[in-house]
Design a protein around this nucleic acid. Sequence first.
DNA 1: TCAATATCGAGAGCGCCGCTCACCCGTCCC
DNA 2: GGGACGGGTGAGCGGCGCTCTCGATATTGA
Lengths: 232, 232
Amino acid sequence: MQGARQRARGEITEAIKEEARRQLAEQGASRLSLRAVARELGVASSALYRYFPSRDDMLTALITDAYDALGGAAEEALADAESAGDSHLVRWLAVCRAVRGWSLAHPHEYALLYGSPVPGYAAPSTTIRPAARAALAMLTVLSDAYAVGALRAPARAAAAPEAVLGDTERLVAQLEVPLPPAVAAEAVAAWAQLFGLVGFELFGQFANVIDARDAFFDHAAERLADQVGLRR
Amino acid sequence: MQGARQRARGEITEAIKEEARRQLAEQGASRLSLRAVARELGVASSALYRYFPSRDDMLTALITDAYDALGGAAEEALADAESAGDSHLVRWLAVCRAVRGWSLAHPHEYALLYGSPVPGYAAPSTTIRPAARAALAMLTVLSDAYAVGALRAPARAAAAPEAVLGDTERLVAQLEVPLPPAVAAEAVAAWAQLFGLVGFELFGQFANVIDARDAFFDHAAERLADQVGLRR
DNA sequence: TCAATATCGAGAGCGCCGCTCACCCGTCCC
DNA sequence: GGGACGGGTGAGCGGCGCTCTCGATATTGA
């Protein structure tokens, strides 16, 4: 049986990622060095290449895990709010807060996910699904609200243009989230805008501008909820 | 007179920045190397240290310039819209489009400004003023609209909490922009959210989600205008 | 005018980095 | 039992940021 070998390989891979994650959290992606990871693991640097073809691939593995952690935090917050019987608005706020909370707790991971794309330009396809989890949590809140009539559809005049609705129609079909395309369009915008708020706070753009960070974020998240049509 | 030396020094500094900017635009900040700049300039790498104490300081110089370029683009768009007699809503859209346009045209510079903070964590104080220019253009639109009564003040119930209003009151005083703190709070949020939209588009988060990028952005910018109280 | 001084570029070198390669050894499979 | 193979080692390549010494040149002041 080759199970032993594969199990060992999996464990070592995990140990490498763990140490890499530690260094990433401490000093950021730019200072994460494969050699330092190997040194800390008491192993020759060349040995790591048996597990990751390059430093970028190691980073990609960390990216996937980070997306999963963020998505997990969002999903957990949603599940808690659901089981607590919170309103859809409160669920929305809970998911937003979870995204911000995870990001503040893991700034370097956040930077890895939503900061400058480090290697090339296109994210590897393996990161797509994990990356969607947080967004999906937001959409879930909305579709649940929509199902029970707790969602105000955008006025006809305020709806997104046709071309956009085509995109979001395809999107809701792909994700199997029952939601009118016009609402989905607002949701996508809110999704991007949420990360704008978080990113600005995290990367220091709010220095000397906003001190009451928590209150400011909560208020902005409420405005986002309003924008996507969640009734107050 | 020491003028000749100083002039030469200024010209060389500019040449270094120009070459660095070229490499930044081509390959991004992470691949910008001081040695490559020196090589391209036909000079020993150690010579550059007479002009910039470190690679990070060179990057900081580029950051300042990039903020100025972005701010200039925003201001120019605003000035054009003003002289064309456009409505305040259209001016707002013009500034938003200018920010997006510049960013799409200079992705690596954008990443340098709003992506992961590369070196430490705090931006040098010399970058603060240039960084504010684009934001100031947005605030200017709003204060002009407010002065002529073209701004809908947020409803009392929808206003930001007290702590936030304290921050934004200080902000409008510092920037000398005559604007109610409640409006300024929405403006700051819109500012961050605008860069969320731009950043997501630029960093590939919209891949397989939104194809009609222009239409989507315009629509989102209109919704932002609505959020800050600009009358349709 | 001439010596003291300041400025600047060159080049060697240090310790990192990512990555490759030849080599070796233990384990598994036939 | 022997060969293939996975996985570890260590040397080494080229590149990086950065430092230091040294000589050349320009500026300055007596």
